[in-house]
Design a protein around this nucleic acid. Structure first.
Lengths: 132, 132
DNA sequence: TTCGGTGCAAAATCTTTGCATCAAG
DNA sequence: CTTGATGCAAAGATTTTGCACCGAA
C-alpha cells in the first residue's frame, strides 16, 4: 500500500484520541493539518484502517459509527444518558463464545459486545435532579 | 394508543417470521395485505413497537437494522459468510454485566451482544470449495 | 512515469418527518 | 367530532463512489 500523509494523520489522531470519535469528528480534526482533506478521504481511510486491523469501528446502532485507535481487546460502555462511549477495564469474557457455540450447528468466531450504562457524570446529574 | 390495522399486521408478521427481517422486508410483506402502506408507516411502527418492547431491533452495523418479533431474552449469530442472522439457544450470560461493572465508576444496566460465526450452510460451501 | 490516493461532488443507502387526509374511539 | 395514524413525498443523516488530477515510489 502506498503511503499517504492524510492516512497517517488520521491514524495518529486516533492513536492519541482517547474519546471515540465519529468520522465527522476525525474529519474536523485532521482538517486542522490538511485543510483541503475531504470527508470522502476520511471515510475511505477509516474503512481501510479498519480492514487492516489498525483501528476499530464501533457500531452501536445509535447515531453514526465511532472509531477507536486502541486495538487491544477491550470493551465499551455506551452511556444511555449522554451518549458518550467509554473504555471499560474488565477481564476477558471470551468464554461466552464457547457458551454460544454449544448448541449452534456452525462455528462461532467471536462476538461484538458493548454495555449500556450510566456514566458517573450522568449519575451525578440524576442525583441533583432528585434533590431539587 | 390508538389501534391500527397496519401496526397489527406488522406485529403479526414479525411474530410469525422466524428470520430477522429488515424494515424493507417487513414493508414488502405487509404490502401484500395493505398494498397502499408506506415505508414511512412501517418505520414509524417498527420504532413504536420497539419502544413498547413488543419487538426488538437488531443493529449490527453491517447493513440495515433488523427486527425480531421474539422478545424473550436470547442472542443472535451473524454469519460472516452470507450475512444471515440466526437465533442462538444458549444459557444466560448476564454475569458479564457484573464483570463489566467491577471497575466502572458508574452503573451498568445491560449489554448488547451478537456473535460472529459461520452457519452450517456456509461451512458446507467452504468444505466443497476446498475439495474442488 | 506509473498507479494508487485525493478532492470534489453526486449518488446511494437507510431513516425520519411535514402535511393533508383518513379512520379509530 | 377529535385526535392520532396513514400515505406520500421531501428531507435528513450517514456513507460510498465516479472521475479528473495529484503525489509517492
Amino acid at each position: 500500500m502506498k503511503y499517504s500523509r492524510q492516512r497517517e494523520s488520521i491514524r495518529e489522531f486516533l492513536a492519541d484520541c482517547c474519546e471515540h470519535p465519529t468520522a465527522e469528528t476525525v474529519y474536523m480534526n485532521v482538517k486542522k493539518e490538511f485543510p483541503n482533506i475531504s470527508l470522502g478521504t476520511v471515510y475511505r481511510n477509516l474503512s481501510l484502517l479498519t480492514e487492516l486491523g489498525e483501528i476499530r469501528k464501533i457500531s452501536t446502532g445509535i447515531g453514526p459509527d465511532r472509531f477507536d485507535g486502541n486495538t487491544s481487546p477491550h470493551y465499551h460502555v455506551l452511556c444511555t444518558g449522554c451518549g458518550s462511549v467509554m473504555d471499560l477495564k474488565m477481564e476477558n469474557i471470551d468464554h461466552i463464545n464457547i457458551i454460544a457455540g454449544n448448541e449452534f450447528e456452525g462455528r462461532i468466531h467471536g462476538h461484538i459486545t458493548y454495555f449500556l450504562g450510566t456514566c458517573r457524570d450522568c449519575m451525578e446529574k440524576e442525583k441533583n435532579k432528585n434533590i431539587s
